[in-house]
Design a protein around this nucleic acid. Structure first.
Length: 361
DNA sequence: CACGGAAGCC
DNA sequence: GGCTTCCGTG
């Protein structure tokens, strides 16, 4: 929903479910899946394939690894991840494509309605065009262009100034929405959002410092949030040039947006892309070198029998209340606010710091 | 591999 | 509530 009234977000933040679990800012698995699906960089790992809304996990171990990194769960594996996916069956967010290995299918109408009720309202102006999504039907109303206009930086949310009544048929058409934004033959992805992915650096550079993972809590231009919470690098550069957010919505919608703004997380561990975290005290928020470094193993610190999880081997404090999950760099917590994170590391973080030091030297 | 119960965590 | 962990079953 914020995407509709924050023109600064080129990246549609449909990986969020703003109105649910107000206290829980943790990214959910299906958000994450959707996110991977959106990135061409991960096409060898997970991709849309086959039927409408269907996707295949091409590399279950890798998906599990990425998920584990995101959740600071170093022992995540496909068995556990798939259990979580199975819980989505009853929630009707996902279902299994029987007979096809590692293949699941989104129930997009559920996903859309849960996340973007306003899309329902908006969609009446998006009734032309052809699907670019493989497997979609040709009468699908959502062109990549139309959808992009929904989330575009230049679009002035033209969709919201109209009265809103939504025929069910239109709602159903929304099922087409997400795939367009993700992939598909005709879709040209938004510029400069997603740098190349490689497995040695699972968290790509967000050159402008914007972390899409955080977008639901992303402060708006002109908002009254303390700037100390979000250093300038945190904002898309274009944002500063944009007009302040408009009050597009009547009544409760505004209330909702306000409440969203009040939900700025204190601990960002699970929400924050670790890549954004300053490599311990450097003061810079985003470090491409740090990211590259993450899996570039120096000498001697490799876990004896572990071949693939340098950064997630020694995370004894992963579940502790101390900020950080043991990754290198560790998850930030309050450290994000204060650049001198290194000085803030608790003693218990010794191991982590040690490792990080090793890795970074 | 896929499923789902059960318990536990946060 | 949303997983994570573990596990027995098919």
């Amino acid at each position: 929903m914020p995407a509709l009234w924050t023109p600064g977000f080129a990246f549609p933040d449909w990986a969020y479910k703003p109105e649910s679990s107000p206290g829980s800012r943790q990214i959910q698995l299906w958000h994450f899946i959707l996110e991977l699906l959106q990135k061409e960089e991960y096409h060898d790992v997970i991709a849309w394939q086959g039927d409408y809304g269907e996707f295949v996990i091409k590399d279950p171990d890798e998906v599990a690894r990425l998920w584990g990194i995101r959740k600071c769960k170093p022992h995540m594996n496909y068995d556990k991840l798939s259990r979580a996916l199975r819980y989505y069956y009853n929630k009707r967010i996902l279902h299994k494509t029987k007979g096809k290995r590692f293949t699941y299918k989104f129930n997009f109408s559920k996903v859309v309605l849960v996340n973007y009720p306003l899309l329902d309202m908006a969609n009446s102006s998006l009734l032309l065009g052809q699907s670019a999504f493989p497997g979609a039907h040709s009468h699908d109303p959502f062109t990549p262009e139309a959808l992009q206009s929904l989330f575009s930086q230049t679009g002035r949310a033209p969709l919201l100034d109209r009265p809103l009544t939504v025929p069910d048929a239109d709602k159903l058409r929304l099922e087409a929405a997400f795939p367009f934004l993700n992939s598909g033959t005709g879709y040209t992805k938004p510029p400069s959002l997603l740098p190349p992915y490689n497995r040695n650096s699972p968290f790509p550079d967000y050159s402008w410092g914007f972390n899409p993972y955080l977008s639901s809590n992303f402060p708006l231009a002109g908002s009254k949030l303390p700037t100390s919470l979000y250093p300038p690098q945190f904002y898309p550069s274009s944002l500063s040039q944009l007009p302040p957010p408009v009050s597009l919505l009547p009544g409760d919608s505004i209330d909702r947006s306000v409440s969203l703004l009040q939900g700025i997380p204190q601990r960002l561990c699970s929400n924050l892309n670790p890549h954004l975290v300053s490599p311990r005290g450097s003061g810079e928020l985003v470090g491409a070198p740090a990211a590259r470094r993450e899996r570039a193993e120096p000498e001697g610190k490799q876990e004896p029998e572990s071949d693939s999880d340098l950064e997630i081997t020694d995370v004894s404090d992963c579940s502790s209340e101390a900020e950080g999950c043991g990754y290198s760099p560790p998850c930030p917590g309050p450290a994000l606010v204060r650049p001198q994170a290194e000085a803030e590391l608790p003693k218990e973080e010794g191991k982590t710091a040690e490792k990080a030091a090793t890795v970074s030297s």
